[in-house]
Every structure is written in C-alpha cells, then in structure tokens.
Design a protein around this nucleic acid. Structure first.
Length: 342
DNA sequence: GTTCCACAGGAAAATATGGAGG
DNA sequence: CCTCCATATTTTCCTGTGGAAC
C-alpha cells in the first residue's frame, strides 16, 4: 500500500517542484551571487500556508548545494525556536559550533560573536515562520553578517515588518520579495498525483479521489498531502488494498472544518455582516442581501462590491450560488447536511 | 417573439491604506 | 508636516445572459 512514506510526510522536498517555476527562478537568482562568493541580499518569501514557501526555499538551497561545493544550508523553524537565543543556538548547532555553549551561562552576544567568527563555507539560513519570533532582532543580528544569506519566510509581509526595528525595516524593504499564492485545484491535483505515484502502490487512489482532496484542501498543499497521508495510513492499518471513500471522507472532514473557520476569520467586518445575513435568511437573492446589509451597516458598500464579496465567499466555499442570472440565490454551503464528498 | 430588468462579472478609474523619504 | 509610491479595496461603467411579463 504505502511504497515510500517519506514522500507523504510534511517537510518532504520533491525532486521537482510543480507549478512554482517563476518563484523558484526568482529565489534562485537572488541567491545566485553566493556561487561567486559574493554577499547575497536577504530574501523574503510570503504567502498563505501550504503555498509552498518552505518547500521552494529548501528546494532552491538544496539545488544550490548540488551546484556549488562551498555552500551550507541551515533551516530554522522560528516557531519552535521562538527566542533569539534558541534561534542563534540552533544555527550554531547546525554549524557544529556549540560544543561549549550552555544555555544559562552564555550571553547572547557571545553567540553572535561565534557566528561572526565562523569562517566556514558561505551559508544560507532559512528562517521559517519568522513572524512567530518573540524578538525579531535576531534577523538584524544575522543581517549584519555578510557570510550568511538569509531567507525569511512569513505569512504576511506587513505583520513581519510591523514588529521589527525601524532600521531593519528599511533594509528589508529593499530586499527581494517572493510572493506566493494558493494553488489552484488542478495544480494541487498534479502535486497529489505525483506524491501518490512515488509514495503509494498503484491504484491505491483514484483520480477522482485526488480531485476531491484537492477540493477539500482549498489551495493548501500541506493540508492536501496531510489528508492523503492520513487516509493512506488508516487504510493501511485497516489493511485495505486501496483508499475507500469512507476513509477519505473522514480524513477530509477535519480539513474542511479547519479551512472553513479560517476563511470566516479572514472576512472583513462588512463581509461578515453579509455572511451572517446569508446564514440567517438563506436562500436569498442579491438585492435582498444588499437591502438587509444596507440597514445593518453605517457606511454600506455598493451592490457591485457586495457581489464581489459574495463571489469571494463562493470561492472560499462558505456560500453556495444557485442560478446564473436573475434566478441567482445564495445559501450557506453544506447547510442542507448533504455529504460534502459525494 | 420582443422588451424589460435584475444579475454576473470584467476592466478601468477612483479611493483608501501604509510606509519611506524629504 | 507633505509627497511619492506600492498595494488593496471600492466604485463606476460596461457587456452579456436569461427569466418573466407582455
């Protein structure tokens, strides 16, 4: 059933990255100078979760290491190493320079000094989830060391910038910025089918199932692969020969609920009013929605804008749209308690 | 049929937002 | 403080569609 579990694990970096050529090339070109031993600008990679930020960062640095002899790569997850000390310690540890460092006794500046004295090969440091740092000044520490190239990964640029020191902000502003978006369903399907091909035996899943996973994951590749992994290992435990639709439904249910809450949280106040109106009075045509909305809100947006809101909610799978013209009605998705996956 | 009108959604202009730099 | 700039959101203007009344 499972041929190669690594392929389905989180954090696996595939040999070929699908549908991210532009971003990969962009990031590669930023790191390019390192092949000549020249200093490298800091790169910032932003995008929603599961868009492939970590994946392409690791992919690009690994490919760099294949091409060039004297380059090291270090990956630090700032969410797990959320203090300045732990981040620096993690980097030194990976460099193999922590022999006599002890948590309590060593002052922070000592760590920075160590890094500064590091005269090994040039090193790319990937700081993942950098917006999770309780003290982002560690970016500044690293930024001032020319032998380190830094890739900062964050969800949103503004949230990163709002927390760092002013002088660092102005420097980071000029750094290269790689923006990433959610995958489309077809792209997710391609990713899933590549993983299924390498990670699972043949005919364990159907194309149709992969499409359903892609749909449930709403553009989040990490989630999509997670669903596939969960389903595969459950099917394996229960010694099925293939992934049944029941198992898949189970694995995807969580994911859907998770995504839905995330989507609702991301709505603006105006959009939430519209959403609540649909929820409380469904099914509802556009003009009635707009009328009710206009009454509830101080400074109402136009009809066209509300239509954009609604189509965004349809995209997010929060709301269903029925009818193509004057017969259009909006209702909550899944409210009729149908099985979400056929 | 024909006409009317609410609706979808694209394109572009207008406006708001947020930060850098003078 | 203001101006410039980039980006995101909103509005304006628009074309095309299809249901409903005539």
């Amino acid at each position: 059933m499972i041929r190669d579990a690594r392929v389905l694990r989180a954090g696996f970096v595939p040999r070929e990255v699908e549908h991210r050529d532009a971003e990969v090339n962009h990031l590669s070109s930023v790191l390019e100078p390192i092949t000549n031993g020249e200093p490298v600008d800091t790169a910032i990679v932003t995008g929603p979760s599961g868009a492939g930020k970590t994946c392409i960062s690791k992919f690009v640095t690994e490919r760099l290491r294949e091409e060039v002899l004297d380059v090291e790569a270090i990956y630090v997850n700032c969410w797990r190493n959320y203090t300045r000390f732990r981040t620096l310690y993690q980097i030194l540890d990976d460099l193999g320079a922590t022999i006599d460092i002890h948590r309590q006794s060593t002052p922070h500046d000592e760590l920075v000094d160590r890094l500064q004295q590091h005269d090994g090969p040039r090193t790319v440091v990937i700081l993942d989830e950098v917006d999770q740092l309780e003290d982002p000044s560690v970016i500044y520490d690293l930024h001032s060391l020319p032998q380190f190239a830094i890739i900062c990964i964050a969800n949103k640029e503004e949230e990163l910038f709002s927390r760092v020191d002013d002088r660092l902000v102005s420097r980071l502003r000029s750094s290269e910025h790689v923006r990433m978006d959610n995958y489309h369903d077809e792209q997710l399907y391609d990713i899933l089918s590549a993983r299924a091909k390498w990670g699972l035996d043949e005919n364990v899943t159907t194309d149709d199932q992969l499409y359903r996973i892609a749909d449930a994951a709403a553009g989040d590749a990490r989630l999509a692969i997670g669903i596939l992994r969960t389903a595969a290992s459950k099917a394996d435990r229960e010694s099925h020969e293939r992934i049944t639709n029941d198992i898949l439904l189970d694995a995807a249910e969580d994911a859907r609920a998770q995504i839905k809450q995330k989507s609702i949280d991301s709505l603006t106040p105006h959009q939430r009013v519209v959403y609540n109106i649909v929820r409380d009075h469904e099914p509802l045509g556009p003009s009635e929605i707009h009328d009710r909305y206009t009454e509830k809100v101080d400074d109402p947006r136009t009809k066209r804008t509300v239509r954009t809101y609604l189509s965004k909610m349809v995209q997010y799978n929060l709301v269903d749209a029925e009818g193509t013209s004057r017969d259009r009605e909006y209702s909550l998705v899944g409210s009729e308690a149908a099985s979400p996956m056929q």
